[in-house]
Write a protein that binds this DNA or RNA. Sequence first.
DNA 1: CTGAAAGCGCTTACAG
DNA 2: CTGAAAGCGCTTACAG
Lengths: 373, 373
Amino acid sequence: MNVTGHTSGPPAEAAPATGPDTARQPRPVSIRDVAAAASVSYQTVSRVINNHPSVKESTRAAVLAAISDLGFRPNRAARSLAGGRVNAVTVLTSDTTRYGYAASLQGIEEAARAAGFAMGIQVLESAAGGQIRDAVQRATEPGTALIVMAYDRAGTKALAAVPAGVPVAAAVETPSGRQAEGKPWVWLDDRKAAQQATQYLLGLGHQTVHYVPIPASTGTSPRLAGWRRGLEEAGAPVPEPAVGGWTADAGYRAGRELAADPAVTAVLCGNDDVAVGVLRAMAEAGRPVPGGVSVVGFDDTPVSAYLTPALTTVRLDWVALGRACFALLHSLVDPQAAARAGTPLEAELVVRESAGPPPAPGTGLEGSGHGPG
Amino acid sequence: MNVTGHTSGPPAEAAPATGPDTARQPRPVSIRDVAAAASVSYQTVSRVINNHPSVKESTRAAVLAAISDLGFRPNRAARSLAGGRVNAVTVLTSDTTRYGYAASLQGIEEAARAAGFAMGIQVLESAAGGQIRDAVQRATEPGTALIVMAYDRAGTKALAAVPAGVPVAAAVETPSGRQAEGKPWVWLDDRKAAQQATQYLLGLGHQTVHYVPIPASTGTSPRLAGWRRGLEEAGAPVPEPAVGGWTADAGYRAGRELAADPAVTAVLCGNDDVAVGVLRAMAEAGRPVPGGVSVVGFDDTPVSAYLTPALTTVRLDWVALGRACFALLHSLVDPQAAARAGTPLEAELVVRESAGPPPAPGTGLEGSGHGPG
DNA sequence: CTGAAAGCGCTTACAG
DNA sequence: CTGAAAGCGCTTACAG
């Protein structure tokens, strides 16, 4: 099973290497070509493609016709070199594949494309100061704005490192804290969502709810804060949060600890991947879900509804957040684009199968501290 | 639970809107500044930053020192306008969040960043001819190369629409067929992998193996071909492939059909998400996995090992594929970059819990056609 | 409302 | 080995 079976060449039926493939492209059509075709000066063409108001309607129509005839597309590089409007955005993020990140990226891309912006990605390899500074520097180019995904330490540091004067918007985990430093941001209010999920579990009859956190972007994590608040408001004991992480693997490790504690009957997880790991640990420990332990996730990934048990989780609309983030940025760099933010969406607890009442004493479903697995 | 709790402004402690945030950036340092600092002409600076061989070593050192002192970074737009080397890549893809796509993207980004390339993404909304043509047009800019993710119809169409002369590399589902048309490509040989997975299931004692496909990029799907080949070589009957798709939801729908057929004892799935849906359908139908039915996936997503049952699946290294794809592209546009392709990796069947021998007759584990669920 | 100039920051030839 | 010219395709002022 060869993975990179063929990394070098065209298939057998392909043209030779010196074929038309290596031919230079004909020079693309420029505003001068359009100008000539429309019998105007090239400055007028520039006005038309920039929606400048003072162009006679008949002139505009002629230019537009020539543009379409010739298939003219403005050269982005020339535009930004000449000091035109910002027409590109590069996203700084420490991750591209985890659900919240990938979905946000998707929303940004959709909105950017609709606005005619090019979208770039620059990954933050680590949270080390030098690396962050370098990455921000590389991303900061004339003519391109920045979006920072500040869901984690690397992101918040990058946001702080963006020099004043660079157009930027951030998607943040929490608006508290000073990492935004006057930079505009969007967020999902998962503090309230965590509180509500906690209340839901308490309402099912659990004495308390344990929490497996995802890594926080700052000292204060809104999901953790919401969980704690939910507990406190109900007068329930506040257990120490587990050692968490982003992945199912991290959830599994936390889940093993939790499964060994008979007092644990309800677990809130920082995301659905973590919940998968917790579910696995519970199964291995012989703790049925939801009969013995309840598990609730965060995100509602596309797979969560098809797990067994189907995951009860908080649905968060990361795609919409990404769109909102771009809209915010767009309004910053283009006055005409202002106020196109979509309707705010509500986070929603999706009740499925993985949470229920705590086990009744004597049913044998309470944790024994050691399962068959 | 307000999702876009705050989409418009800075937090309370932020600077006023007219603060330093809106100040214009000071003019970035140019090659002329560097030239002045190093007491050479700016052409010499250009030679140094382009690694031109004919520069005296002492001159080069002086220029490099000035570059570092001044924090000079070349302007990408100016470079490509002036006709310099390709220094950016934009990826055309119909998806950014599904595992294979997202992981490939990650590999491309890593490799592009390491090579100093900017990376952009352009999503293909549909496979409609006009849309594809537009997307390819927009992505085709002077100074930027293209990578096409041709794992699906939209991707193969986009690849075919790339004009000759534009530097491009593709990650394809299958190198057969004419969609590549002389354009260089990389791929993962999942045909062999599918064949091997099928053989594995047959070896466990199953009479045949059913298949739930992912959508094919062309008329011929390598995974499907490998599955069929595996069956034929063993002289096993070749059932009609199920109606598949990309998602757990598609897998679930296929799984319900399959679960209703008592003759089905082994199911190979086009990817792990589909497998999750099949697993769910089997559970609902009261068909235990692997006791009653075996299920095997494709990809080995980070979550697959933590499902219950843990998923037996074919591990595919999409990140490495992405890196290889960029390396191929890089060698095309920069002679000095040639042949840096990494070691080819083997696809690997990861045996976990979801596949086993078929149920013995009379154990009650054979499908009854109607489960309790 | 429209045209002519200057210049963005670079890289190609072309000179020496 | 290094310098002076021309120009990439645009957009800003500046004129009229």
